[in-house]
Amino acid sequence: MSTTIADTVLGRLEAEGRLLNSVLKGPTKKPGRIGFRGDIALKFQVKKADEARPPEISSDQVIAAAHADEPYLAFMCGFLVSFEYVKLLAEVLGDALAPQGKYFLFCDNIDISKRYQVDFGGATFYILPIDEATVYNELLQLLYLEKNDLKKLDTAGKVDAIADKAKGFDQTFPKISYEEGLALMGPVRNLYENRPV
């Protein structure tokens, strides 16, 4: 029996219409594991009639893995335009979060030289700055994964390699509360200004 998304905690997010723009949403090479690569909608826009509108707030560039026999998300990383949305993300994920899971959030408005740990919603989030690169590239650096080693793998294989390596991640960063993070965060920048068209 092959595992489907409905067999994992990602099934609820899929049923709620939150898993968007996916390049992977299904089984990986590991038995029982479902991988996701795409965006997670955190707050929907008000719909008029049946038009499909992009979410008002989302976590983009998400890479996640869940197992059929686990009631929580084993691994997740993603981009947030503002640290403030950690709360929204934790509320959306709800009981899919657990102390055993590994969760990495790259926030656009935290000091580029700082890294933090924030306990929220029964889980620990590693809060990291994003240095103009992609979440994927930043994560490979953080986990000491060689890009060239992953090049020959398909998307599912890459998610497996990242999720497996993240499982053993044991670095510690200064612990701050969510409220302290709010006080430390910088202004939210418009991601689309000064970009060549």
Score class of each variant (00 low, 15 high):
Thr28Leu: 13
Lys29His: 15
Lys29Ser: 13
Gly32Ala: 08
Ile34Asp: 08
Gly38Ile: 05
Gly38Lys: 01
Asp39Trp: 04
Asp39Leu: 02
Ile40Trp: 05
Ile40Pro: 08
Ala41Lys: 04
Ala41Cys: 08
Lys43Thr: 02
Gln45Leu: 11
Val46Ala: 14
Lys47Ile: 13
Lys48Arg: 15
Asp50Arg: 15
Glu51Asp: 14
Arg53Gln: 11
Pro54Phe: 07
Ile57Arg: 14
Ile57Cys: 00
Ser58His: 03
Ser58Trp: 01
Ser59Trp: 00
Ser59Glu: 11
Ile63Trp: 10
Ala64Leu: 08
Ala65Asn: 09
Ala65Leu: 02
Tyr72Glu: 06
Leu73Thr: 12
Leu73Lys: 09
Leu73Asp: 11
Met76Asn: 08
Met76Ser: 13
Cys77Thr: 15
Cys77Phe: 03
Gly78Pro: 05
Gly78Val: 14
Phe79Ser: 04
Leu80Pro: 02
Val81Pro: 02
Ser82Leu: 01
Phe83Cys: 02
Glu84Val: 07
Tyr85Asn: 13
Lys87Pro: 01
Leu89Glu: 08
Ala90Val: 06
Glu91Tyr: 04
Val92Met: 07
Leu93Gly: 08
Gly94His: 05
Pro99His: 09
Lys102Met: 12
Tyr103Ile: 09
Phe106Lys: 01
Ile110Thr: 00
Asp111Trp: 04
Ile112Ala: 12
Arg115Val: 02
Tyr116Trp: 10
Tyr116Val: 10
Gln117Asp: 04
Asp119Ile: 09
Asp119Pro: 00
Phe120Arg: 10
Thr124Tyr: 02
Pro129Gly: 05
Asp131His: 11
Glu132Ile: 00
Glu132Thr: 01
Ala133Trp: 07
Val135Lys: 09
Val135Thr: 13
Tyr136Met: 10
Gln141Met: 12
Leu142Phe: 02
Leu142Asp: 09
Asn148Pro: 00
Leu150Pro: 10
Lys152Pro: 03
Leu153Glu: 11
Thr155Tyr: 00
Gly157Trp: 00
Lys158His: 05
Asp160Asn: 12
Asp160Cys: 04
Ala161Ile: 08
Ala161Val: 09
Ala161Tyr: 00
Ala161Arg: 09
Ile162Asp: 07
Ala163Leu: 06
Ala163Phe: 09
Asp164Met: 08
Asp164Ala: 12
Lys165Thr: 11
Ala166Tyr: 06
Ala166Asp: 07
